[in-house]
């Protein structure tokens, strides 16, 4: 297991996931450490996105799905009977592959999460919106047009807005599902720099198709194949000296 001096944020034990009869994930056990970036890599259909979406129970929306095993956040099984999914998703934020700002103003997009969680004080909302936009490295670009529609922003700006929106509710973990796959190289670079900054305060888990990206931004990397966790270790080790043959084949481009 990677660097034992860090605290463990999230633990999964023998976690399996089913779409109907199809088992998409088989017995995943993993410890995700606090204030680090953990990358999930693997070929399409390997289950990495499904696993990511299991960590804030976004898969609950899909009918006919079922889980086995445990996902422990702060020692509590998030699939336990009396767990409040709403509260879980506040603690475990998510940024999607395709940027999805609401058709509202920039300000209202970031304020949305605060308002649904009952923050009524306008100055507190405004302050948190600014903090979040600064944290997402977007404040300087939008501070003069907060009341303009979020849909007028460029693709990269929209994605950083979605990150700001996720940060506004002060999550502990931010899940990112290929956050830069639809962006140009410059916008991608900005997102990557942002991820590097964000890990000081948040625990980041990122799914990526781009192995260079995983190598650049992450501290630990997990390689998934056919619904199984093949190897999970320090990113440096995965990319220079993987234990498993399959991992080596994948990162050297022999399949995938």
């Amino acid at each position: 297991m990677p660097n034992p001096t860090n605290h463990i944020e999230l633990v999964t034990r023998d976690f399996s996931f089913y779409y109907g009869d199809f088992r998409a994930l088989t017995s995943i056990s993993m410890d995700v450490e606090r204030n680090r970036v953990t990358a999930f890599i693997g070929p399409s259909g390997c289950g990495k996105s499904t696993f990511l979406r299991s960590l804030n129970r976004m898969n609950d929306i899909i009918p006919g799905t079922r889980v086995e095993g445990k996902v422990l956040l702060g020692g509590v099984d998030i699939y336990g009977k009396d767990v409040d999914v709403v509260d879980l998703r506040r603690k475990v934020g998510m940024v999607f592959q395709k940027s999805n700002p609401f058709p509202k103003s920039i300000f209202d997009n970031v304020a949305y999460g605060l308002r649904i969680h009952g923050e009524r004080n306008p100055s507190a909302v405004a302050q948190r919106v600014e903090e979040s936009l600064r944290a997402a490295a977007l404040w300087n670009e939008v501070k003069d047009r907060l009341d303009k529609s979020a849909l007028d922003l460029s693709g990269g700006q929209q994605q950083r807005l979605c990150i700001a929106r996720a940060l506004a509710v002060k999550p502990e973990i931010v899940l990112m599902d290929e956050p830069a796959s639809a962006l140009d190289p410059l916008a991608t670079q900005k997102i990557e720099e942002l991820i590097f900054e964000l890990k000081k305060e948040y625990t980041i888990i990122i799914v990526t198709h781009n192995m260079q990206q995983a190598a650049r931004v992450s501290d630990a990397t997990a390689f998934f194949y056919l619904g199984e966790l093949v190897e999970f270790d320090e990113t440096k080790k995965i990319f220079t000296n993987p234990k498993e043959k399959k991992t080596e084949d994948y990162i050297t481009g022999r399949f995938g």
Binding site: V86, R89, Y112, V169
Partner: peptide
């Protein structure tokens, strides 16, 4: 779009 609903749900909205 389902993406909009997902964004809201992922922020902890009911």
């Amino acid at each position: 779009p389902q993406e909009l609903k997902n964004a809201s749900l992922a922020l902890g909205a009911t």
